[in-house]
Design a protein around this nucleic acid. Structure first.
Lengths: 337, 337
DNA sequence: AATTGGCACTCAGGGCCCAGGAGTGCCAAG
DNA sequence: CTTGGCACTCCTGGGCCCTGAGTGCCAATT
């Protein structure tokens, strides 16, 4: 139903519109791309494309611009992933080299993605649930309060204070710490819940109330705390793309962790680069933006997601290339540490 | 040189302009405020005020708007700090109640300030250098790599990985950990440098290379790491105030930690609320914004700064009230934990 | 059946003009 | 020092026209 030339026309329209931000007409099209046909022919093709919903004209007698559906077709069938230039690869390497801890890695990744794509970058912290506990530490803050520190094998450190029902002494803490580490070290966080349920049997009755308080905080920390953080960067890039009055809406959405989580969640879980275009995002305020995202994590396992967000009028091939490359590099770095 | 009525006129101009965002003329002024004089008199006063540099007119035959100098006078002599309403106080309390760890406190504070003032909120993490070490933990990651965790009495947790020159065993780690905690617990971070210098003498010669690596990372962490983080929130509020084309500039500045640090640094160190208006900010990109900030910290000591940033056309009394109140509450919470 | 040139039509955007109105500065009188 | 009067400025918004890019349709061509 859409022959090769019509597809070529769509591709040309998308490319031109992305680079010029102006509706593109039949004349300009034959000029810039070397299609060996006349403008009139292109007009016929464009009429078909419009009928099918891939393009629209903002006003009668203006050029055409792609619809979300048009971008979708473009991404799915007409464009590949544009590999990065050597310079860009080098930039990634130098930028991420010597990133010590997880926080640094995430922060630098955000900046890197934003600069590389000139879009808004979103990076989710690697999820806890799929990693394993490396160590648990208890530090007394006062006689009825402890600081609980959980260290995972992805280098993440979670901290919470625990309010105790009764006083606790140094020896009890030592004992509790030993029990915790004996039972939990190396456990996948996903399995922690069942293990913790067994723990009260392993402490003496008199310690049980305090221990129970600690256990419940551990559960909260590793299981119930689904609220993984998403870090945003490069918001300034939004001002270039003209969202007319939607900018406020977009900025607001970007400040809501919950919204960002939903957004990234919608885009699946795989390690391949996925694209959600405009209205495909079922998130208020982001229906006029596109998200290019992928999973990433140490080695091949996908622990979290990262990507870039921009106007639907976005250079998808380049964005996909950058996202894929950055995700791989970050994966390597996480695997090393 | 400026009699009472002229000051009253300036105050009225500031208040009207802040609330309407339109240049204010002599007629409108006598109407809205009950000055018992005629517009002509006001015009004379305004001419004087303009001559002195407190107000300007955007175009001939438009009303007047305050200059940075005008706002300065307003803040210094004409306005107080507007106390919060009971509802707002309650909001602060419920919003910050049950904030467990430092991260949570900071994040909530940012959101709270942004919502309360409808401006951009900036909150600096409490500085390390003035707090004391509560505990140091070493966790083996592999045989040549350690995770160093430093816990301070402000509830802050710093983590770094340490690359070791040679292998290290469990017993050596235990020993090193004991030495560290014996010597450093309770020390002010500012004093750590001198103490660490003495440490190599307290470990056996064979352990010294590995220990040295750990020591140097500790130094980096607590001393050289001046780059305290500043968290920003409520950027969406910037779209309401019309920065015309400066918005991009402002958003960019807000993403630069260095810039934010300088900004907050400029505004002094005291626990009182300070205001920097427009061009008083010597920071590129933020010369058309005002900052209302104050120091905060556990008890009365000022560990870091927080505040709100907005257009110079800002409701200073309200902003100052909110900043002061929030800083106090956060101080209480930090003191408790 | 697809392509092409010709042609009339549409409409957003820019330039221009004009009137209205808010606001000013100045001056002379109270 | 204050005030009313007055002439002047100039921004704002609306209306109007024109231009140019772009379209849809049609008849002719391949």
């Amino acid at each position: 139903m859409l022959d090769d030339r019509k597809l070529a026309v769509l591709r040309a329209i998308v490319e031109d519109f992305v680079s010029t931000n102006e509706p593109v007409g039949s004349k300009a099209l034959v000029d810039r791309h070397n299609l060996d046909v006349s403008p009139a022919t292109i007009r016929n093709d464009m009429a078909i494309l419009e009928e099918q919903g891939y393009i629209v004209q903002p006003h009668t007698s203006a050029g055409r611009i792609p619809t979300d559906l048009g971008y979708r077709l473009f991404v799915d069938r007409l464009s590949g992933v544009k590999p990065l230039s050597a310079a860009e690869r080098r930039a990634i390497e130098t930028f991420l080299a010597g990133a010590y801890d997880l926080d640094t890695v995430v922060m630098r990744t955000v900046r890197l993605l934003a600069q590389l794509t000139r879009q808004v970058a979103v990076v989710q912290y690697p999820s806890l649930t799929r990693s394993a506990i490396r160590h648990i530490e208890l530090v007394p803050l006062s006689d009825r309060r402890l600081l609980l520190v959980v260290i995972t094998d992805t280098g993440r450190v979670e901290q919470r204070t625990v309010e105790l029902p009764g006083e606790i002494g140094e020896e009890s803490i030592t004992q509790l710490r030993a029990v915790l580490n004996a039972c939990l070290d190396g456990r996948k966080l996903a399995d922690v819940a069942s293990v913790v349920a067994e723990l009260p049997n392993r402490v003496s009755a008199v310690e049980r109330p305090n221990a129970a308080a600690v256990f419940s905080v551990i559960l909260e920390t590793v299981v119930e705390r689904h609220e993984e953080r998403v870090v945003v960067g490069g918001a300034a890039n939004l001002t270039q793309a003209d969202f007319s009055r939607g900018l406020h809406e977009v900025l607001e959405a970007l400040e809501e962790q919950v919204v960002l989580m939903r957004l990234l969640g919608e885009s699946g879980d795989q390690a391949i680069v996925t694209v959600r275009i405009g209205s495909e995002n079922e998130v208020d305020g982001l229906r006029s933006t596109s998200l290019v995202a992928t999973g990433y994590g140490a080695g091949n396992q996908s622990l979290a997601r990262l990507g870039v967000l921009g106007p639907t009028r976005m250079d998808y091939p380049t964005a996909m290339g950058a996202v894929r490359a950055v995700a791989r590099y970050v994966g390597q770095i996480l695997a090393e540490s």
